[in-house]
Amino acid sequence: MSTTPSPVAPEDVRRVACIGAGVIGGGWVAHFLARGYDVTAWDPADDAEEKLRRLVDAAWPALEQIGLADGASKDRLTVAPTLAEAVADADFVQESAPEKLDLKRSLLAELTAATRPGVVVASSTSGYPMTDMHSEAADNGRLVVGHPFNPPYLIPLVEVVGGDKTDRAAVEWASRFYDIAGKSVITMDRELPGFIANRLQEALWREALHMVANGEATVKDIDDSITEGPGLRWAFMGPMLTFALAGGEGGMAHMLDHFGPSLKSPWTRLEAPELDRALRDAVVEGCDEAADGRTYADLVAERDQGVIDVLRATGRLGKDAT
């Protein structure tokens, strides 16, 4: 385990390397560019650069709305021909490869070998603990999870946690860097498969699939039940405080005493349903119906504007937002 400190302080980071340039990796690229960093990206796909620049172009209007940092420019993006060239001068590395454990293990080992000593490398994994991913890396003390939410250039949250070989200093460094880079950071004290937010999303997702599989609700019914109901509250107050308010002046204590017995009611089925062809097709067809002719680009623009509107309405855009 390495105890080498990062070669730069979090506030002195100038160049970020983004390894993997798909939806999440490309979203990270857009975010870091908008925050005024130089960004070097690498992805093994033949058409990666074309797709990445198209993604950044699509994200830029939303980023201009919420406010660009001084010096922010799409021209500060470089796409490197090799992984080694992408990370050679990086002060921080964000890995966003596909969610395949063997790939993550070999890639993180390659990244620690190719970067300067001490440079913190963060993985965007949505579920794997770092302890499961760092086994092939010789210098694994500087490997952390930095789990974002899609799109990373708009959704503030990033969950930061190390593995059993990660130096605590690397976790603290990463958390401080993300904070400076404009993210809302949860620094976890321990590893948890799926982290925090994905565990909560997964419970909702499984119940939604059960309702579709059993013909109890359509895809549109499920989405409307959140956007027109509890989702409006969750935009500014989480489920725990929301439930506490359900207890009136007695707060959570009254809520639990009054509604606690209902926890034994068989309302939810947290075991995942069998994702057979019929359920898959029902979900896909339901999403097509809910899209109602809107293209992927249309839906991305609608989502981005919706996030901006919520952030603006709840006072979380920051002083630079227009």
Rank of each mutant, 00 (worst) to 15 (best):
W42D: 05
G163S: 11
A174D: 03
T131Y: 01
S96K: 02
V145D: 00
T131E: 04
P151W: 05
P81S: 15
W60L: 10
Q94A: 02
P98D: 10
V171F: 01
Y128I: 00
A122Q: 01
L107I: 13
E49K: 10
V93A: 06
H147L: 10
L101T: 08
S96Q: 05
L107N: 02
A170N: 05
T131C: 10
R176V: 10
S126Q: 03
L101Q: 07
E49D: 13
L52C: 12
H134F: 09
P44Y: 06
P81C: 15
D75Q: 14
T115H: 01
D102R: 09
Q94V: 09
L111P: 00
L68T: 08
S123T: 14
D179P: 02
M130G: 04
A48Y: 07
T78M: 12
L63D: 01
A138I: 14
D46L: 11
A80G: 07
R105V: 01
A109V: 07
V160I: 14
T78N: 12
V119D: 01
D89T: 14
W173R: 01
W173T: 03
E50V: 14
I66C: 06
S73K: 07
G118N: 09
A48D: 02
G141P: 03
A170P: 05
S124E: 06
L108I: 09
W42V: 10
S135I: 11
E110M: 12
L154H: 10
V161C: 15
L77F: 11
A169P: 01
K51P: 00
